Simulated assay, not measured.
Amino acid sequence: MLDLGNRQSIYQPEQPDLKFPSIPEFETAAEERLYRKQRLVAACRAFAQAGLDYGFAGHLTIRDPERPELYWTNPMAVHFDRVTLSNLILVDHDGRVVEGEHAVNRAGFVLHAAVHEAHPDILAMCHAHTLYGVAFAALGRPLAPISQDACAFFEDHVVIQEEAGAVAVETKAGPKVAAAFKGVKAAIHQNHGLLTASRHSIDAAAFWFIALERCCHQQLMVEATGHKPVLVPPERARYSREHVGSEYIGWLHFQPIYEQLAASQPEMFL
């Protein structure tokens, strides 16, 4: 084990006074709420930028800091690229919109509300119907540790077979999916797609979703060659996960994405 001192990650600089992203501290719940909502909007825009959109499918959520029984989410049938601060909606665990003008995605409510309610420690969650994630989910098996990127998910994701292939519109589907999220940050729902959750931030949940989709793509490409890949040994995979798979690292990875979007799409904060 490396001695990190007061640092959360080996990637944080040891030298003082260097420019480097830092997690903000908030004096009021209102400040933290605005921060979370801004990051949620940016996460939606990041999904659009990465092509992780499919009609109205896809939902991202973050708990309200003052009322944790409520969560903010993107509005139903609004493209990720058109999500703004002003059209976010606040929803309770029963799927009732308590703030905002738009409807909530029924499937998003069924899955996300169940996860948030079953796991009070989970702050944020992401799901979308993506090309490579859905394709890989049809295999009904976990990712293999074929790269350092994939090692971020080693022993930190599950394959969910319950309700596989059934559209999650009935509330009974939610608890079955929620039960799988104990102690992991990601799930591959067989015949459905990818889900990620974070106990840290929407930043981390969003980045790990983007990363998981990328890893599914990579594994499908490798398997398409017909050659058996060389796997990272378990002890090395765990070492890599420790340093490149934490909640903090997910948050850190999202920061350049956020800065790029904030500079190029300032209208998202209206």
Results as ranks from 00 to 15, higher is better:
212 L>T: 09
206 A>L: 03
30 A>T: 06
164 A>G: 01
155 E>P: 00
55 G>Y: 09
155 E>I: 00
116 H>R: 08
138 A>M: 12
177 V>M: 02
128 A>H: 05
173 A>C: 14
196 T>G: 00
259 E>A: 15
208 W>P: 00
258 Y>S: 05
169 V>M: 06
87 N>D: 08
54 Y>V: 03
25 E>V: 09
136 F>D: 02
202 I>A: 07
213 E>T: 06
150 A>T: 10
165 G>F: 13
138 A>S: 11
112 H>T: 08
170 E>R: 09
106 R>N: 11
218 Q>S: 15
227 H>R: 06
50 A>R: 14
191 N>H: 15
37 K>T: 08
81 D>H: 08
127 H>R: 11
151 C>N: 05
86 S>T: 14
270 L>N: 11
93 H>D: 13
133 G>H: 08
146 I>L: 08
47 F>L: 15
236 R>H: 13
171 T>P: 00
245 G>N: 05
185 K>I: 03
249 I>P: 05
206 A>Y: 04
208 W>Q: 12
254 F>T: 06
166 A>D: 10
93 H>V: 11
200 H>V: 07
78 V>C: 08
61 T>C: 06
245 G>S: 06
191 N>P: 01
240 S>T: 09
237 A>H: 10
151 C>P: 06
208 W>K: 04
199 R>Y: 09
259 E>R: 12
77 A>L: 10
